[in-house]
Amino acid sequence: MEDPFIIAGHTIKNRFLLGTGKFASHLLMKNTITASRAHIVTVALRRIDTQSSHDDNILEYLPKECITMPNTSGARNADEAIRIARIARAAGCGDWIKIEVISDNKYLLPDNAQTIIATEALAKEGFIVMPYMNPDLADARRLCDAGAASIMPLGSPIGTNKGVCMRELIKILVEEISLPVVVDAGIGRPSHAAEAMELGADAVLVNTAVATAQNPVLTARAFSLAIEAGRLAYCSGISASKETAEASSPLTGFLR
């Protein structure tokens, strides 16, 4: 079955996007990326600690065939996100950018209004912008108009592993938004990822659930299979659920 996944004209080879945070080591991260077969991986930009040594460069551990997408984590408003994106591009990380603007420290929920402003500015500068957002239809439409390459609604708050709590709203986005929908954040188990894909999401971005598992390599493989299964289920047009029972076997023509 031909089922290409295209973002901004680029064919993305896997619907599993992987974050690189929280891994115990860069080598473990590298092995996990290989197991996941992810084509897009995210990284963050931080001030260096000038007091410690910096021999380990994360970029050297990322497979060459992967698209490295920096995020703007740490940005509290559009201006900071724009600044981080420009620095990341100047550092040689390419045009892909995940916009993440967060001013709420407790739930780490994104600020859609500032995200829209940053998306518009960066899209004009030629970035391929993938904004992390609260799943709101009007804001998703604004992001499309602002030049986003995809939208990335949260399943549930970052790092909570609660799954697709925003299920009904994400379903609406899938129906109404023509850009790729990547469910990002809160996906804690392969079954959550499969659920997002069954809803019709184009892809899923996972980090915490994989990186903090006892065996991240095995977990990545499990997520990869779940995402593929969920996608196949969506494409197959699985039947809707019903309130009352319906026999699977014929009820007539036997003994009565």
């Binding site: 974050g19 945070g21 931080r46 550092a91 980090n207």
Partner: peptide, 10 residues
Amino acid sequence: LEILSFVGGG
């Protein structure tokens, strides 16, 4: 001066 580097992130 800001001196920055890439780190793991989601």
